[in-house]
């Protein structure tokens, strides 16, 4: 239902008419939906590029908007990006909560890393931790990784897309408690993001495992 693929040829051959579902006898809706979704995404992309262009030129005039549209269309055609499956859900309240938490965490962690640089002991050994995310969508994994990279203390090193695992390097992490808190932070980021922009499936996954650290007791993967 949520896939963007066209009907495979073998299925077409089996049905009475091309492009008709075997079970319901109606033309599958997903084709139109997927085309529509792709077009809307391209439109959103073009809109944001035009907005960026207009902001760069600091003036909203016919010339800037037109040139922005032309350039945006050119860029999206030449540098074609694969479509991102957006979840279609955007909760303003949770997005604001996420933004506020992100800013606070950014400041707190920057001060902490700056303190590491100034204090006598500098920093201890780090660790590479694995976080098995509850979500399975590309966009959400990317957002979690970006946020974790931005907040001082963790850098995303690698990811396992198929299993939905993120590998991060955490600074000054030479005890179990610090590893625990590092993982807890990543899961917290994921929870905030799922509540803000996650799809319904992600929300269900979130409700299924609300506490991956506590329940599974320091799982290692």
């Amino acid at each position: 239902m949520s896939s963007n693929s066209q009907e495979p040829n073998s299925q077409k051959a089996n049905s009475q008419r091309p492009g008709v579902s075997r079970t319901t006898g109606r033309r599958p809706v997903k084709n139109r939906q997927s085309k529509g979704r792709g077009f809307v995404q391209q439109l959103v992309l073009v809109f944001f590029l035009v907005l960026l262009w207009v902001m760069l030129w600091d003036s909203v005039s016919v010339l800037s908007v037109l040139s922005g549209v032309v350039l945006a269309l050119l860029v999206t055609r030449v540098f074609y990006l694969p479509p991102v499956v957006l979840s279609g859900r955007f909760n303003i309240i949770h997005a604001v909560i996420f933004g506020a938490w992100f800013l606070y965490s950014l400041m707190h962690a920057s001060v902490e890393v700056a303190w590491f640089a100034f204090r006598r002991r500098a920093v201890g050994a780090g660790s590479v931790i694995a976080c098995d995310l509850r979500t399975s969508s590309d966009l959400l994994m990317t957002l979690v990784a970006d946020t974790a990279s931005l907040i001082p203390g963790s850098i995303i090193i690698d990811s396992d897309r198929a299993l939905g695992v993120l590998y991060l390097h955490v600074l000054d992490c030479d005890s179990e408690e610090k590893i625990f808190s590092g993982k807890a932070q990543v899961y917290h980021i994921e929870e905030l993001l799922i509540r803000a922009v996650g799809s319904h499936r992600d929300l269900a996954a979130l409700r299924a495992t609300p506490d991956p650290m506590g329940l599974k007791g320091g799982e290692r993967r």
Binding site: L81, P82, V84, D138, L139, M141, T142, A145, D146, I156, D158, S159, D160, R161, A162, Y167
Partner: peptide, 15 residues
């Protein structure tokens, strides 16, 4: 590999 995606490197197995 999966389809090309946005953002991270997504080799199916890390390294």
């Amino acid at each position: 590999h999966d389809a090309p995606e946005v953002g991270l490197d997504v080799g199916s197995d890390p390294d």
